[in-house]
Amino acid sequence: IEKPYLMNMQKNGTLKPAGVGKTQITVTSGGLSKSVTVSSSLRSNLKYAKQVNGNVMVPAKTIIQALGGTYSAKNGGIEAKFGENVLSFKAGSSQAILNGNPIRLKTAPLTDKGELLIPAAVFSDALGAKISWDAKWKQADISFGDATLTVVSSETAGLIKKAMQGSLVKFIGRTYWVNDFEGLERFSKLKVSDILPDDKGEFNVIFTSASGKTVKSYPMRSSEVMQLFADRSSLLNYDPYQKYKWSASVWKQIKAGQVSLGMTKEQVQLSWGNPAAKDITTGGGKTIETWGYSNFDIVSFVNGKVILIMM
């Protein structure tokens, strides 16, 4: 194995990657040899990268271990071993030692929020890694050809979230009133506190109620979120109690989903929702407007008031 620190021999004789990198494995048997190159990447991202005065800084311990090395405190500093390669450095000092030779780091390692950060460029000197900073996502990429690992910053998650949210972000902070949503009390007040994307490309809308309770919606596609806020059957973008000064008895019926004679069109619409079909007929000098619902309920109006209910 060209770089033994990148591979662990298992009890059954198989090899398991021990770090991110690229190494060549040669098997010889009976005078015959066969070589294969193995590239190992890290699927999950590491944390706490940041850019300081143009220098890419990464957490020393987690990166060293992710690259197959060992990390230990020694002589008041840190010693990292990658097979025969040995790197020694100290926080606050730009002087380091690589394989017994002094080298100067691009900037001194520093402690930030309890994490020792080291300039990522040192892994180019020690291991031949390519270091890059993704300005769009504010993250560091360390690679050996097609073997890669990514170290995100404290800003990365927010940037990705904002990109996934797209135009949905405009709904955050808006206030709505429940019409028929998640079994919540009708006409109770909700504020959109966040819209969270998941790993399936769907979104959960997070609301805060008037009492401070957090309410989480079911997962929805982007188009469904837009429809949720546009369709009055689920949420209202106005306070119905302020818009309509109806009696307490009328509101009680509406909240219970009931319709009674004498109700107005607005009251019926709030109680039962939008009809599936409408029909207008004229007879006896009167204009009769009839609403039909998908459950076969029917209500008729004359002069805007209910005169007939069929359920």
Score class of each variant (00 low, 15 high):
S93L: 11
S222N: 10
S143I: 03
D194W: 04
I206N: 00
E84T: 13
Y176P: 01
S234G: 00
A66V: 05
F207K: 00
Q10H: 06
T70K: 12
Q65Y: 06
I118M: 13
I97K: 10
I142A: 03
L87S: 12
D146H: 06
A49D: 06
V86A: 14
K3Q: 05
K189N: 01
T264S: 15
S209F: 02
E266N: 15
S260K: 14
G128Q: 08
E155W: 01
T62R: 09
W177N: 00
V205R: 01
I206K: 00
I64W: 00
K243V: 10
T23G: 05
G212F: 04
Y48L: 02
K162H: 00
F229P: 01
S233V: 08
G77D: 11
V27R: 06
F207V: 01
K74Y: 11
R221M: 11
M7W: 03
L98T: 06
N53M: 08
N12W: 01
K162Y: 02
L127F: 09
S222R: 12
D279A: 15
L15K: 05
W251K: 10
K138V: 07
K130V: 12
F181T: 01
W251H: 06
V299T: 12
F296P: 00
E79W: 07
Q10F: 07
Q139C: 08
I1G: 09
K191S: 05
S234I: 00
S167T: 07
Q269L: 12
V225T: 05
R104A: 15
I254L: 12
K189G: 02
K213P: 00
W137A: 11
W272I: 02
I103Y: 03
I172K: 03
E2R: 10
K245F: 11
S260L: 09
E155K: 12
N303P: 02
K34R: 15
K16G: 00
S88T: 14
G21T: 07
G92Q: 12
L46S: 06
P240S: 13
F171I: 04
S94I: 02
P197S: 09
A49E: 07
D194G: 09
M311H: 12
P17S: 07
L42M: 14
L168Y: 01
L67E: 06
L6W: 02
V52G: 03
G183F: 00
V52Q: 14
P102M: 11
Y71M: 11
A147T: 09
L110W: 03
L261V: 07
V250Q: 12
E2S: 15
S124H: 14
G283Q: 13
S40G: 06
F181C: 03
G128I: 10
K74E: 15
S72R: 15
Q51Y: 03
S247I: 08
I63E: 04
A276M: 13
S39L: 15
V259S: 04
A66I: 07
P197T: 05
K113C: 04
N12F: 04
T28D: 10
Q51M: 12
S88H: 10
S223V: 13
P59E: 12
